[in-house]
Write a protein that binds this DNA or RNA. Structure first.
Length: 648
RNA sequence: CGCGGGGUGGAGCAGUAGGUAGCUCGUCGGGCUCAUAACCCGGAGGCCACAGGUUCGAGUCCUGUCCCCGCAACCA
């Protein structure tokens, strides 16, 4: 066989300021699946992920935690790596921007561009938001003159800094993007970037003196290299940019940088400019995927809908999560993640369709033929059709995967799984088994089902590596599963005559859902209904009605606010200490925009007493203060009744 | 005139250089019994947010309006 074609694929490097959430897991799973597919298809793949560990924010957070920055990031990065392991991520390397190899590479890149004259010293004046590590111009600020992102105050800063002449490359870049439609996808992002570039590019400030947790600028040690210049360079480091010319030439340019839509700009403007300055070829493709919306809403701890991927993996297994993310969410746009939808997919697709197909097949082979497959002889119309479908599925799948149509490709496999289930119905093996003369027809049927499952296991392996291998093992296939190639999926009839299969074993047990979880679901349904009906004049109010019994579950009481203080580093949260009459509680309330803490002290307000406690910003909030709101306005319900009064 | 995404049967989504509106789940009815109350077949359910326009013909193109959602993942 000819030498394998190289394929270099990357995820963004994640910022270790907090734990990773399902959105990060999504992105990395996408990349992993593509990487696994490429390996399956015979490419020599290098798959990189990592962490972006520098910056003022990390430095500060570490200080607050009383540890050094490196101690701080070491710990968090270990949790990244743990998560990737649990998720079955098959990265070939893990780059950390604090590694010596990366620092050397960045300094070298900086030096080369500087010597070329594309980096110059200037001074930067601007309004800086520390938490966001962003400079803003005056008109970008929000109505209060604060950071438009986080709405915290900004500081005026002026510092000496190095600049990278991006402006010099704008025309070349635009030309490149316009001439290479594949470079930037999906098209909506591409159009966006073309517009952005046409508005003109400004030189980019790439150094800082205001903090020192970063890579020193080689010729001027009081500067550190600023975030994007540092972070983007990670893509060059692990493939031998500095010290392994052969490896570097093999893998560069990258085949795919997979990124979230929020950072497409950096990857399609700054990064290509850096590469052009280095006189290196540009990556073949940058793909900006969408985000995950959770339960129709933004994730937030306060709503109790933060999705911790590790917890999900514990509960459902990595493959189920992977399957859900890749199947349910369309790559280019935002997608919904919900627990109900996840369970529905697991039950119907994984347990009923796939798991049960394997189980019933192996069971029949065991029951009707003592677990032994016989080479088929003759072919019925059903057999021929099944086989044709299998072959069509494989080639559709291959094409789809090459085009990054992940969701479409896996759906096609499921259509085939469905086809195989139908085949069982068509051939009715339990009938054949009763007729000795149909012995060979039965054997053909069993053989074809086993072949179908063998092929299915190959096709799903990039998506669900563990499950694929379990199927493989249950079919008692020979050889290392990791060595299997896509070409074997095309080879119908590979199972030898007389092959004995293994015992059936449940792949995915069905997940039984309790009839009605009183809390979350109805509330959500109601919310959606409301918003829908608001436009169409709520004619069907009765559908939102609750019974007296429902209402009586909510305990409302008048309580007195004893103390109130702002929760540090938040803009909407107040921590309140309230007196219920017979006890005191702490609750966190998102009303800081409307009330100063001192305004609330002494007030008697209405509160939900029996709300399940929730942890918000580390504070246990047990209860909720009721407030009326309309547009921007908000008022807590304050009443002139004694503490402890029931509200009904 | 900040930017972007979106409004399609109960839910979640597809709809590809404009030509009978599809899929999954749910639901209703039937079939089957090898199987994880599973599998197979069939039915009901949509004037594709609204209003104009282009066209022989628009969910799909153009214009305008309304509504939702984000601004990068702490905000009960």
């Amino acid at each position: 066989m000819a030498e394998k074609k190289p394929f270099y694929i990357t995820t963004p490097i994640y910022y270790p300021s907090a734990k990773l959430h399902i959105g990060h897991a999504y992105c990395t799973t996408l990349a992993d699946t593509i990487a696994r597919f490429k390996r399956l298809a015979g490419y020599d793949v290098f798959f990189l992920t990592g962490s972006d560990e520098h910056g003022q924010k990390i430095q500060q957070t570490a200080e607050e935690a009383g540890v050094t920055p490196i101690q701080y990031v070491d710990k968090i990065v270990a949790s990244f790596q743990h998560l990737w392991k649990q998720l079955g991520i098959s990265n070939d390397d893990f780059i950390r921007t604090t590694q010596e190899r990366h620092q050397r590479a960045v300094q070298e890149i900086f030096r080369r561009i500087y010597e070329k004259g594309d980096i110059y010293k200037g001074s930067y004046k601007g309004l800086y938001c520390t938490p966001c590590e962003s400079y803003w111009t005056e008109h970008q600020l929000d109505e209060n003159g604060c950071c438009p992102d986080c709405h915290r105050p900004v500081q005026e800063v002026s510092e000496e800094a190095y600049f990278f002449k991006i402006s010099k490359y704008a025309d070349r870049l635009l030309d490149f993007i316009e001439k290479n439609p594949d470079f930037l996808q999906p098209v909506s992002r591409r159009n966006e970037m073309i517009n952005f570039i046409k508005q003109g590019l400004e030189d980019l400030c790439i150094s800082r003196t205001s903090f020192d947790w970063g890579i020193p600028v080689p010729m001027d040690e009081k500067h550190v290299v600023y975030v994007w210049f540092d972070a983007l360079s990670n893509y060059l480091t692990p493939i031998g940019f500095l010290d392994d010319k052969e490896k570097f030439e093999k893998y560069w340019p990258a085949g795919l940088h997979l990124v979230g839509k929020e950072i497409v700009r950096f990857h399609t403007i700054i990064w290509p400019c850096i590469l052009m300055a280095l006189e290196l070829p540009l990556p073949q493709k940058v793909y900006g995927h969408g985000w995950l919306i959770v339960e129709g809403d933004k994730m937030s701890k306060s709503k109790g809908n933060v999705v911790d991927p590790l917890a999900l993996i514990d509960e459902f297994g990595a493959d189920a999560i992977r399957y859900f993310l890749l199947r349910e969410i369309n790559l280019g746009q935002d997608g919904n993640f919900s627990r109900d939808a996840l369970i529905a997919r697991i039950n119907s697709d994984l347990a009923n369709d796939l798991g049960n197909l394997l189980h019933r097949t192996l069971n029949m082979i065991g029951k009707f033929q003592q677990g032994v497959l016989l080479a088929p002889q003759g072919e019925s119309e059903f057999d021929a059709s099944l086989k044709a479908d299998a072959m069509e599925t494989v080639s559709f799948f291959e094409k789809g995967m090459e085009n990054m149509e992940l969701s479409e490709s896996i759906k096609k496999v499921w259509a085939f799984i469905s086809r195989a289930n139908k085949y069982i119905d068509e051939t009715a093996p339990w009938v054949l088994a009763k007729d000795p003369e149909k012995k060979q027809v039965l054997a053909n049927t069993m053989y074809n089902l086993a072949e179908s499952l063998r092929i299915i296991s190959i096709l799903i392996s990039p998506y669900m590596p563990t499950t694929a291998e379990r199927i493989w093992k249950q079919l008692n296939q020979e050889g290392e599963f990791s060595e299997v190639q896509l070409s074997e999926a095309y080879a119908w009839g590979s199972i030898p005559d007389g092959h004995a299969v293994g015992e059936p074993e449940q792949l995915f047990p069905r997940i039984e859902v309790e009839k009605e979880t009183p809390a979350a679901k109805p509330v959500k349904a109601k919310k959606q209904k409301e918003s829908k009906e608001n436009k169409k004049e709520d004619k069907k109010e009765e559908s939102c009605e609750i019974s007296m019994e429902d209402f009586s579950k909510i305990h409302l009481r008048v309580v007195k606010v004893l103390a109130a203080e702002a929760v540090p580093k938040t803009e909407k949260l107040l921590k309140l200490t309230v007196d219920l009459g017979d006890e005191q509680r702490e609750i966190v309330s998102g009303i800081a925009k409307h009330y100063a803490p001192e305004e609330l002290v002494g007030k008697n307000v209405v509160m939900v007493v029996n709300l399940k406690p929730a942890k918000i910003r580390g504070i246990v909030s047990h209860g909720m203060v009721l407030a009326a709101s309309a547009d921007e306005d908000l008022q807590v319900l304050s009443v002139d009744m004694p503490v402890g009064s029931q509200v009904r």
